[in-house]
Nucleic acid binder design. Sequence first.
DNA 1: GTGAAATAATTTAATATTGAAATAGTTGGA
DNA 2: TCCAACTATTTCAATATTAAATTATTTCAC
Lengths: 150, 150
Amino acid sequence: MPSHYKGTQEEVRALKAYITLLRSAESLSSSLAGELAGQRLTLSQFGVLEALFHLGPMSPSALAGKLLKSGGNMTMVVGNLEKRKLVRRVRDRKDRRTLKIHLTAEGRRMITEVLPEHVQWIRARIGVLTEEEQENLRRLCKKVGRGAVS
Amino acid sequence: MPSHYKGTQEEVRALKAYITLLRSAESLSSSLAGELAGQRLTLSQFGVLEALFHLGPMSPSALAGKLLKSGGNMTMVVGNLEKRKLVRRVRDRKDRRTLKIHLTAEGRRMITEVLPEHVQWIRARIGVLTEEEQENLRRLCKKVGRGAVS
DNA sequence: GTGAAATAATTTAATATTGAAATAGTTGGA
DNA sequence: TCCAACTATTTCAATATTAAATTATTTCAC
């Protein structure tokens, strides 16, 4: 976040774009986290419930892949969801190393309750951009994000 | 991260923009975190050193304001930097409630060593966009970020 | 001046996060 | 068959993060 860096015009332009990108993402996720706090859900917990809801039961490692988090992290997040009986760990009969995480009825109720509100919330926030701007933003972010696995 | 949500076209467009924004920011910061790991610095620690370097000594609460983090968090991050003697807590004579966090000589050496590399790294990552795209990205992110304090 | 309210920092408890080490289970080749 | 290599998950240690409670100090109204 070198917001006061003295450098060439090119450097300053890149830094400004970089900082603004990170700040806007942070702003969005922290507002969303605030919304979810009402349900006593963290963003990570929400991510897990949402993935299970849309993609069906899956293993911790599959969840970690989807959400770009470590395996150890999934153990913790799933554990906290399990404490609240929103998900259930089910051991596979065939390969007893692996688990499938299932939504419980209560977990399904929770995510179906919470999801529409949050879609509306996101729509409202992103809706400050015109249709064309939204697609542009997406294109630019995609381009920047791709350098990732270098 | 409702990447499989079924909804209106408008909702889907907004969600896609939202997800891509968050993912690209995540991708950038996690690569940057990887870079900093070489120096055994976290992103937060880097942020503190950088702020002190460019803006001079300041209080934990001022740092918290700059970096958009909580006060309690600053106690922790500054504490970890102080353990490594990269910063120093200096109690104010006039108002003994407040502190100023100062870079040590070693902290200054560290940030001046690390900063140019990271500017170049950011420039390279953002450099996949043309000059015009960078300014566009910044404009769009700024617009989205502003809805924040609603 | 004194006590109440305000301010700055820290502590605490809970969750998140990672990477590395440990544990448990599977599998394929000698 | 057996064991070495592999895979899935958990545990561990360190750091981050927040919100709420606590401590120390200052300030202000009376």
